[in-house]
Amino acid sequence: MEVSDDGCLSDVIQSINIPVEIRPVFFVNHKRCAFDKKLSDGDEIKIVSLIMGG
Protein backbone atom coordinates (compact mmCIF):
# COMPACT_ATOMS: atom_id res chain seq x y z
CA MET A 1 0.00 0.00 0.00
CA GLU A 2 1.25 3.46 -0.87
CA VAL A 3 0.93 6.44 1.45
CA SER A 4 1.91 10.04 0.79
CA ASP A 5 5.29 11.36 1.97
CA ASP A 6 3.92 12.84 5.18
CA GLY A 7 1.40 10.04 5.59
CA CYS A 8 0.68 8.55 8.97
CA LEU A 9 -1.00 5.48 10.38
CA SER A 10 -4.43 7.08 10.56
CA ASP A 11 -4.43 7.51 6.73
CA VAL A 12 -3.98 3.77 6.33
CA ILE A 13 -6.63 3.01 8.92
CA GLN A 14 -9.14 5.27 7.19
CA SER A 15 -8.47 3.80 3.78
CA ILE A 16 -9.17 0.22 4.84
CA ASN A 17 -12.24 1.03 6.90
CA ILE A 18 -11.86 -1.37 9.84
CA PRO A 19 -14.96 -1.86 12.01
CA VAL A 20 -14.40 -0.53 15.53
CA GLU A 21 -16.26 -3.47 17.09
CA ILE A 22 -13.28 -5.72 16.47
CA ARG A 23 -11.16 -3.35 18.57
CA PRO A 24 -8.16 -3.11 16.26
CA VAL A 25 -4.68 -2.39 17.57
CA PHE A 26 -1.92 -1.25 15.23
CA PHE A 27 1.73 -2.18 15.10
CA VAL A 28 4.39 -0.56 12.97
CA ASN A 29 7.56 -2.63 12.74
CA HIS A 30 6.38 -4.75 15.69
CA LYS A 31 5.76 -1.75 17.96
CA ARG A 32 2.27 -0.77 19.06
CA CYS A 33 1.66 2.73 17.71
CA ALA A 34 -0.64 5.67 18.10
CA PHE A 35 -2.69 6.82 15.10
CA ASP A 36 -0.46 9.82 14.41
CA LYS A 37 2.65 7.67 13.89
CA LYS A 38 4.43 8.90 10.73
CA LEU A 39 5.18 6.16 8.24
CA SER A 40 8.30 5.66 6.14
CA ASP A 41 9.12 3.56 3.11
CA GLY A 42 9.11 -0.18 3.84
CA ASP A 43 7.37 0.05 7.22
CA GLU A 44 5.56 -3.14 8.13
CA ILE A 45 2.07 -2.55 9.49
CA LYS A 46 0.24 -5.21 11.43
CA ILE A 47 -3.38 -4.92 12.56
CA VAL A 48 -4.46 -7.08 15.43
CA SER A 49 -7.99 -7.51 16.74
CA LEU A 50 -8.59 -7.60 20.48
CA ILE A 51 -12.06 -8.94 20.14
CA MET A 52 -12.04 -10.91 23.39
CA GLY A 53 -9.68 -12.45 25.89
CA GLY A 54 -10.49 -15.88 27.29
Binding site: V25, K46, I51, M52, G53
Partner: peptide
Protein backbone atom coordinates in the same frame (compact mmCIF):
# COMPACT_ATOMS: atom_id res chain seq x y z
CA UNK B 1 -22.71 -9.17 19.28
CA UNK B 2 -19.51 -9.51 17.27
CA UNK B 3 -17.71 -10.78 20.35
CA UNK B 4 -20.19 -13.62 20.81
CA UNK B 5 -19.95 -14.56 17.17
CA UNK B 6 -16.17 -14.71 17.35
CA UNK B 7 -16.35 -16.80 20.53
CA UNK B 8 -18.83 -19.10 18.81
CA UNK B 9 -16.64 -19.53 15.73
CA UNK B 10 -13.24 -19.88 17.33
CA UNK B 11 -13.74 -20.31 21.06
CA UNK B 12 -12.07 -18.41 23.87
CA UNK B 13 -8.67 -18.77 22.18
CA UNK B 14 -9.95 -16.70 19.24
CA UNK B 15 -7.88 -13.79 20.42
CA UNK B 16 -4.69 -15.68 21.23
CA UNK B 17 -2.91 -14.44 18.13
CA UNK B 18 -3.84 -10.82 18.81
CA UNK B 19 -2.85 -11.32 22.44
CA UNK B 20 0.64 -12.44 21.43
CA UNK B 21 1.16 -9.23 19.49
CA UNK B 22 0.24 -6.98 22.40
CA UNK B 23 2.27 -9.07 24.87
CA UNK B 24 -0.70 -10.46 26.80
Amino acid sequence: SVTSQVLHENGTAANLEGGVHIGD
